[in-house]
Nucleic acid binder design. Structure first.
Lengths: 240, 240, 240, 240
DNA sequence: TATGAATGAGTCTTCATTCAT
DNA sequence: CATGAATGAAGACTCATTCAT
């Protein structure tokens, strides 16, 4: 569906395309948007011409990478919307966006609607992304978990800022704490106080996505809102 | 072309150097770090060779631009430290850093201590910058205006994030509001609640830097902590 | 995709070959000899590999196009030799060559004996072409319709020049007039004078190929030497 | 005046520019318009970047070559117009054009007014060229030396054809004879007959440009109309 | 066998850096 | 000392040709 070339039915071609997208994503993230195409080709283990067969220009390749990234985020957002409480879904989504946007912050320029990226496919993906984001935001606002004076553009900007914050930080754990701190700024003042109170006692809030946890009278207090967050936190601990 | 005295020549050279630094700063900000050196020379109204006489490589020029930028920030920070109350000085300084770092966020990579920038002069400037920042932070923390669990690195990261936020935003006023929101996250929980309360009644806090204002029983309530912030806010209103 | 019988497969292959030759001819004519092979394959509706199955290199394809072209011209020349009076046959043949060599003059390089085209098949075709041309020329010279101081090479050169003339001209009718004018230069001086006199009265010469017409005492004077020329002229009038 | 760069005052730069133009002219003529720019740079003895400093694209270089060529022709035409009798000037000019257009006929595409060459400088040169050509043609027609039913476009086409003729011919002398033959087709029928008669007796016509010579009663009959044609014919003999 | 994906050498073009004027 | 011309290494992109499916 996201292919630039139309009917590439051959299995090897599809595999190559995936290899290139993945290699390009890593290369852009590690070496910046100026990484030579030859480097991407080398990482993907193909010739330069093969890259051009699939993506007519370097710009097209970059856009394909972004499109793929956005679509993963959209899928994740839609799942959260269906499974979690509004505020939990919203903040979990934002964390997801920030953590998966390792592309040294270059993704920011794309998420922020920018007239200089006119390719229709990318534009459509950006729109879908913003739709999901807006839906999550409004639901969370209706549920009282997010300040009412915040709009989708604000959320996008804050997200972009968090990505930069993370990119500028070698210490991932510290970075994550900061992201939490910044995102907390989006909560309603009441919710902030609540959060702070809870956090002081280290009880009642998911240690990963920050969503409130149902208080249980007995048993060991839950630290995470579910298996997903527990696993994510664990991976983060292991990754250092 | 040559002036009357040898001393005049040196003055010419200094003026040229300033022209180049200024032109380079604008060029980097507007066209990114990939702007050709010829373009910078053209903006400065000098030949390419002249740029090389003053800066041995393009990298050196870039660093000189950053050094100048950092030194301006340092000077501003030292003034604030001398003139304002700790928290006010700290937050005013952060706002200053964010607003003057129009270099589309490229400055972030520099402020964040990075091993790939080994030039001693830049390194020294970065250190001075971090010293001022640390002093301001600790003073504000001792005064109870800033959360105690925040370190200098965190502040740098947050600042970098705010620059990105502003860069991704066409609407400057909205961007500024967001920056305020994020920086508020650094205040102590008590201070936050206070702020929020004050802000609701629109009294007692500088509308620009957010520092607390001395409550006066009579007379028109102050909106700004001083002439500087009033002027800055005015410029922002005029700029739209 | 495969037909019913093996014989059918061979027929398919022959049809494919014809499609490719025709597509290549058009492509070379319209876009020059630098047209990509992929473009030719696309025009022929086959894959690039199929072209290579039939023609080992692009050069070979080009030569096959020329061979086909030359053989059509040879066939046409032989027919004229058998059916028309010598001068009429000669000039008609030249017109044919010029008009069918729409390949923007690229054919010139081939017709002119050139050592850089060493493929035997092409060489044979060129030889056959020159044999026919020489036979027509000599016959016309023996018949007194063409200057005696002209050799086959001269005729080839003049033909090439006429093709260029036509190619440089958007107005086909005007181009055709010029070709006539140039070819008239090959006639014997006496014939030229005759022609001019005739042309003044618009009688006695085929209005298309310029061959002399038998004068008839009665009846409507003939404008063309035969149905072929009449038809050709008509097509030209319709094409504008 | 024809420079793309504006104030290239330095002597070495001007010399380099001339070297490049000359090298490019030869390269285009010998290897066609597809000759790599590196080859041109090599012939000129400069680096590839130097070519691009003077001519921003390959197309621009090609056009500069044509402009220079056209301006030489224009200058030659204007001199002839001032010094010779109309018909003599006209035919001498055409010979000049044909002989100097060694660019394997590629010049044809340029002389023939073509919308795909929109650069203003080239366009201006083409216009000047056509003005001179038209002036020469009309003067010769008024003087009765050229058929009245010929227009400037016809002359351009014929010239282009002659260039191709010459290009397809290794034997320069034979080529020259053919050009004469074709150009004679432009003379008035009366002039043709005259020419032919004269030529038979080898008296009274310039052996190079074909202009009539004043008959002298005594002394050795003149073979050329002046020193220029004599010299040109001699060069041609030596060149073989 | 036909297809079209992969290849990589070759081309145009840019630009940091050097150097003659 | 300033200038801007020259350099050439490097990058984006094309396309003839080969080869796996």
């Amino acid at each position: 569906m996201t292919s630039v070339t139309n009917g590439g039915d051959r299995a090897d071609a599809r595999r190559n395309r995936a290899k290139m997208l993945s290699a390009a994503g890593e290369a852009f993230a590690q070496q910046g948007l100026d990484v030579p195409l030859g480097e991407i080709a080398r990482r993907a283990g193909v010739g330069a011409g093969t890259v051009y067969r699939h993506f007519p220009t370097k710009q097209a390749l970059l856009e394909a990478v972004f499109v793929q990234h956005l679509e993963e985020l959209v899928a994740s957002g839609e799942q959260r919307m269906a499974r979690f409480a509004p505020a939990q879904a919203f903040f979990g989504f934002l964390l997801d966006v920030v953590q998966k946007s390792d592309l040294r912050g270059h993704i920011c320029d794309v998420i922020a609607e920018d007239a200089s990226w006119p390719r229709p496919m990318l534009r459509a993906s950006v729109q879908r992304f913003r739709q999901v984001l807006t839906a999550l935001l409004h639901a969370a606002q209706r549920a009282g978990g997010v300040r009412a004076d915040i709009g989708p553009d604000d959320v996008v900007s804050i997200t972009a800022g968090c990505v930069s914050m993370l990119a500028a930080r070698r210490d991932r754990a510290a970075g994550h704490r900061l992201v939490q701190l910044v995102l907390d700024g989006l909560r309603t003042p009441a919710a902030v106080t609540e959060q702070l109170a809870f956090r002081d006692s280290a009880v009642g809030v998911c240690a990963d996505c920050g969503a409130r946890l149902p208080l249980q009278a007995t048993g060991r207090p839950a630290r995470y809102c579910g298996a997903t967050c527990r696993q994510r936190a664990r991976r983060r601990r292991l990754a250092g």
